[in-house]
């Protein structure tokens, strides 16, 4: 487990450096009695939240498979709660909504715990897909039926099904890589989240041309390209966490980061449609759980299936 310790020390080092830089910048800008600019205040709270997130993930990793499954079940819960809050629900949906939280999330993650891959991969897209509209129809309320049913399906697919593919990496048995699934998860999270941070940094420094001005003012081509290239290099440098060679690790990281970018873009489109800026307020400086996890939602299933196809 030397890799875990190196990774942990590396993260603590990066965060310490980030905190030091942010503290220095804050000190410099308020030295003459000025008010702290909002960008810097936001940067400070973002870094503080990163400390908490890294600590939480590390603790989950200490508990191994069970810890990671519980952590992601909680992430799914928080993400689904933010999502459903923004959708149109009616009184007749009460039981379906309860079922989404009290049945679908626990079952999906339990299937991971017992490593029943066949059921894990079809429980949501087959059984829940058909059961949910059936139960909604039984409730008899047809007002905006299609809209309600589709929104429920989307919520479950994004917040539960897609996200559960992160801990699902633990269930893959890769030759010469047995028992190291946690490292693969660390690789995925580090590159995807690293890409988010690097896109933010490159965007703030060089951002000029917006990718989709109607959807998000903060996503620029400069940020995207700079972020994905640097995060791919980061991925290649982290190859020792994975069963990949360095070029393979770079390619896998690039793929995950591009998917992550699309995840962020789709999440922005949904937020714009609903007229909100953030999904919630759970993570200070970042917004809600989905604001942080949107890239992982899109990256995890693709990453999982490519590893599963080529490496097992």
């Amino acid at each position: 487990m030397a890799e875990t310790i190196w990774l942990f020390l590396g993260l603590v080092g990066i965060l310490t450096a980030a905190s030091a830089v942010a503290t220095a910048l804050s000190w410099k800008s308020t030295r003459k009695g000025d008010v702290l600019p909002s960008t810097l205040a936001n940067l400070n709270s973002r870094i503080k939240a990163w400390w908490i997130m890294i600590a939480t993930i590390s603790i989950a990793f200490l508990f191994g498979k069970g810890g990671v499954i519980l952590l992601f079940a909680f992430v799914s819960f928080a993400a689904l709660r933010e999502y459903v809050t923004l959708t149109h629900t009616r009184r007749g949906d009460h039981w379906i909504l309860l079922g989404m939280f009290l049945v679908i999330i626990p079952v999906q993650y339990y299937l991971l715990w017992i490593e029943w891959y066949g059921m894990f991969s079809i429980f949501v897209p087959v059984y829940c897909f058909l059961a949910m509209p059936a139960l909604t129809a039984i409730s008899g309320d047809t007002e905006r039926f299609l809209e309600r049913v589709s929104e429920q399906q989307w919520g479950i697919m994004l917040s539960v099904y897609c996200l559960s593919h992160v801990p699902a990496l633990l269930t893959l048995s890769i030759p010469q890589f047995e028992g190291k699934g946690l490292l693969l998860i660390a690789f995925l999270i580090a590159t995807v989240q690293g890409s988010d941070v690097l896109q933010y940094v490159f965007g703030k420094l060089f951002g000029r041309n917006k990718v989709a001005p109607k959807i998000s003012p903060s996503k620029t081509w400069e940020g995207l390209i700079g972020g994905v290239i640097s995060a791919s290099l980061l991925g290649a440098a982290l190859y020792w966490l994975t069963p990949f060679t360095p070029p393979q690790a770079g390619l896998m990281a690039a793929l995950a980061c591009i998917m992550g970018f699309f995840g962020g873009l789709v999440a922005s489109a949904i937020k714009r449609d609903r007229g909100v800026k953030d999904w919630g307020h759970m993570i200070e400086g970042h917004g809600g759980m989905l604001d942080r996890a949107d890239s992982l939602v899109f990256a995890a299933p693709i990453f999982f299936h490519i590893v599963r196809y080529f490496w097992t």
Binding site: R81, H94, L98, F101
Partner: peptide, 18 residues
């Protein structure tokens, strides 16, 4: 805001919504 969706009249269990 939203409490009527979390625990509507007659419901026993609350749906977690923000």
């Amino acid at each position: 805001e939203n409490m009527s969706r979390v625990l509507p009249k007659g419901a026993l269990l609350p749906v977690p919504l923000l």
